[in-house]
Structure formats: C-alpha cells, structure tokens
C-alpha cells in the first residue's frame, strides 16, 4: 500500500512537471483558467442578451453551475486521453513509461490527481466569477453538505474511471485519438445537459443521458447546492433515488473503465500500437 502511494506521488509529481514546465507558475495558472472562465462568460453573454425579455436567473444559475463543474470532465477525462497522445506522439516516451516500474496505469492515475487539482481550482474560480461578477448567488444555509460531498466524491470517481477508458481508446486508436478526445468533450457537453435541461433532448437521447454519471452528477450538485435542479424529469426523483442512481452509474463506469482500459491496452499491445506515431 505504502509503495503504491509512493508511486502515485511520483507519478503526480512527474505529471505536474510535464504539465507546467513550459511556463512559469503564474502564466500556467492564467492559461489553465482562461478557458473555463471564458466558457462561463459566454453563457453570461447569452443570458445578458435575453435577460431583459426572459428573466430566468434561477435556471441560469443552475446551468452556470453545471458548466463550472464540467471543467472536471474537460480537464480529467479529456486530459487523460491527451496524456497517452502526448507520451506516444509528441515525446515518443510511451514505451518507456510502460517499461518503467511505475507502469502506465499508475502514471495515468498519478497524473489524473494533478488534473483533478487543476480542475477543482478552475471550478472554484469560475464559481467565484459567477458569484462576485455575475451575481449568481445562492443561500449557503440551504446547502446540504453531506449529500453534496457524497455527490462530489462519486462524480470525481466517475470522472477518473471514464478518463481511463478514454486513455485506453487512445492506446488502441492512435490516428483518431485527437478526434476521440475533442469529440468526447463536446459530445458530453451536449449529452449530459451541462448548459440546458436534458428534457430538451429527444426522448431516445434522454435515456442515454440518464445512464451517464455526469448527467446525474450535475443535477445532484445543483440540487444540493442551490436547492433545485434544472431538469423537470429528474426533479420528481427523491434525493435518495438521485444519489442511488448516481452511485449505480458511477459503479458501472468504474467497472467499464477498469475492464475497458485493460482490454484496450492488451489489444493495443497485440496490434503493436503502443509506439505507433502518426502525427509528429
């Protein structure tokens, strides 16, 4: 156990060095925050444009919150896909990571810790921008901390699990890896009702959206932080049902992520794709 923690720490330190050594810390923080803040401001611009005709501040706050937490998916899920791509294509070091005592799964786990920390920082800053600059506020006394903490923890586990699956896909499919990473980011943005209630999706898409942990995660975070969600369909669910569904979906994705990653890695080894460079 102690050895595993030491390896995780080494991988996290390595990840931090790789992710940040191209710039000084201040510049790195600015670059890391620009994208999530700007996405929040785009939503704010859209709201400002229509707010005089259709005041819907409560709904907008809920959607803004979903967008803030989607930073976890962008940073961690997509980031883990990019780790494989960078190691193989750009630095041509993937095979060395595989043969190192650390191993790729531990390297991915460690580096995901760094990405989780960066994502968390981004979420806090985006929420602060919302609170202070856009006046998207809520009543802190109404926040249900135990449920919120549980939902947050489940969402983080789901995020890392899906990240492993994306990394596995990157191992097996070198050429379309960029498209998979970028495609998944926008597909999840649409499918999980990040900035709109999933009720607006066609019925068949709603069923898929409800099976994804992120849809339930955003809805749970909204409910336990603001007191209300965005989706009318999920609003009928009790808190226990919502948390239960989130836990179930997360467990399913933990299993899919673990089994899927190792199956994809084995297949990639067999096909000789671990050091197959296609871009640079």
């Amino acid at each position: 156990m102690r050895a595993a923690i030491a390896r995780l720490r080494s991988a996290a330190w390595l990840g931090w060095q790789i992710d940040t050594n191209w710039a000084d810390p201040f510049l790195f923080i600015v670059y890391s925050l620009l994208r999530p803040i700007a996405t929040g401001l785009i939503l704010a611009g859209m709201y400002w444009a229509v707010s005089s005709r259709v005041p819907a501040r409560g709904m907008f706050t809920a959607l803004y919150l979903g967008n803030a937490f989607h930073n976890f998916v962008t940073q961690v899920v997509i980031g883990m896909g990019w780790i494989v791509l960078e190691e193989r294509e750009e630095y041509e070091t993937l095979k060395y990571v595989f043969t190192s005592p650390l191993g790729l799964p531990m390297c991915l786990a460690g580096r995901s810790v760094v990405k989780l920390a960066i994502a968390m920082f981004g979420v806090v800053v985006v929420m602060a921008v919302g609170w202070f600059a856009l006046h998207l506020t809520w009543d802190w006394r109404e926040v249900r901390w135990p449920e919120l903490s549980l939902a947050l923890a489940l969402g983080v586990v789901a995020t890392v699990s899906v990240g492993f699956l994306v990394a596995g896909l990157g191992l097996l499919l070198p050429r379309p890896a960029i498209q998979i990473n970028e495609g998944l980011a926008v597909a999840l943005y649409l499918m999980c009702g990040v900035i709109f209630p999933i009720d607006l999706l066609p019925a068949w898409l709603q069923s898929i959206a409800l099976a994804l942990p992120f849809t339930l995660w955003y809805e749970a975070l909204r409910r336990f932080l603001l007191g209300h969600g965005a989706s009318a369909r999920i609003s009928h669910w009790s808190d226990a049902t919502l948390l239960g569904a989130l836990a179930l979906s997360t467990l399913a994705f933990v299993a899919i992520g673990r089994l899927g990653y190792f199956a994809l890695e084995t297949r990639a080894r067999r096909l000789g794709r671990l050091d197959q460079t296609t871009l640079f």
Partner: peptide, 21 residues
C-alpha cells in the same frame, strides 16, 4: 465537420431553456 456543431446544438438548447425568442 461534426464536433463544432455539437457545441452549437448545446448553445441553441441553452437559449431554448432560457425561453429566448
């Protein structure tokens, strides 16, 4: 061709969620 349009769909649905014209 496809990916930027998925993001576009999300923004259209945001306007719909806000009840915009």
């Amino acid at each position: 061709a496809v990916l930027p349009n998925l993001g576009m769909c999300a923004f259209v649905l945001l306007y719909r969620a806000l009840g915009a014209p």
